[in-house]
Simulated scan of single mutants.
Amino acid sequence: MLKHKAELIRFLGSDSWLMELLEAVESENLPDAWVCAGVIRRLVWDRQTGRHTTDRLDDVDVVCFDAFNVSKEWEKAAEQRLRLRLPQVPWSVKNQARMHHKNGLPPFRSTLDGVASFPETCTAVAIRLERGQLRLAAPYGVEALLNMTITPTPLYRHGAKNRIYQTRLQEKSWKSEWPEVRE
């Protein structure tokens, strides 16, 4: 069982598949790019429960920040370049300079500002390879991820934003795949 941030970083760094993803993202030189959310959550929860389900990934989320090029076409071109490197990976590149519109939030100032706006604390985790070193960002810590607990981030605790969070819980249906998950 993973219990601490240092153990999490060691575990993620020991996963050859994830490292291959991170190397591909680093090699593309996307501005302030990180791999985040579901791919990390899935790897950790599979580790915590003894499962291996990465073959069922919907996508591999790559977040970056380029305030000067906010077109979806730019994102699609980045996905295509990543697909040329690793064609079997379902890449999804999202420029956080435009993603604030999705849930009616103020503009983000950086990639990690965007990650901090994710609805669940267990998905608000990102990792990148930076000159050969792993760097982990978790604006709300890693406890919820490691404890398999789903809780809303501060933006999604009340009102209309909480309805977005509740809808995601139903759509994602994480408890059906990992019954150990706590809400």
Rank of each mutant, 00 (worst) to 15 (best):
V89R: 09
E79G: 12
R163C: 06
P152I: 03
F68C: 12
M19D: 03
T53A: 04
K175D: 12
K72A: 14
Q48G: 08
T149A: 08
R182Q: 15
I40M: 06
E130L: 05
I150M: 11
R131V: 05
P152E: 06
A24S: 03
E7F: 04
T49I: 04
F11M: 05
A37S: 15
E75H: 11
L21P: 12
A126P: 00
P179G: 12
V142F: 04
R98G: 09
Y156I: 02
V44N: 07
P107R: 00
R163T: 01
L82T: 02
L57G: 08
V63R: 12
S71N: 13
S27T: 00
L136I: 08
E20Y: 01
F108Y: 11
T123M: 11
P119Y: 04
M148I: 01
Q166L: 13
L43I: 04
W91M: 10
L136M: 06
G114N: 02
S71R: 15
S92C: 13
A77Q: 15
T49L: 12
P119G: 13
P90R: 09
D55M: 06
V62C: 02
L136P: 09
V44P: 01
T49C: 15
I9V: 12
E75G: 13
N29I: 01
E143I: 00
N147A: 10
K3I: 01
V25T: 00
A124D: 13
V25L: 01
H158Y: 00
W17L: 09
F68P: 00
C64G: 09
F65R: 10
D61Q: 13
W174R: 07
L18T: 05
A6S: 13
A37R: 08
A137R: 09
V62N: 05
L8T: 03
D113V: 02
V93L: 12
A126T: 01
G114L: 05
V25C: 00
G104C: 08
S176K: 13
R47L: 07
A160S: 09
L2N: 09
L84Y: 12
G114K: 02
K172Q: 05
K175F: 11
F118W: 14
L105T: 02
L22D: 01
T149Y: 05
E73V: 15
K175N: 04
R10F: 03
F68G: 14
R157L: 08
I127Y: 01
R10P: 02
T151V: 14
M99F: 03
I127R: 11
Q170I: 14
R83H: 14
L30K: 10
P154N: 05
A24M: 00
E183A: 11
Y165G: 07
T123F: 10
A33R: 09
A67D: 14
Y156P: 05
F118R: 08
A37C: 07
A137G: 11
S16F: 02
P87C: 13
R168V: 13
L136E: 10
H52E: 14
Y165C: 04
V93W: 04
D113A: 15
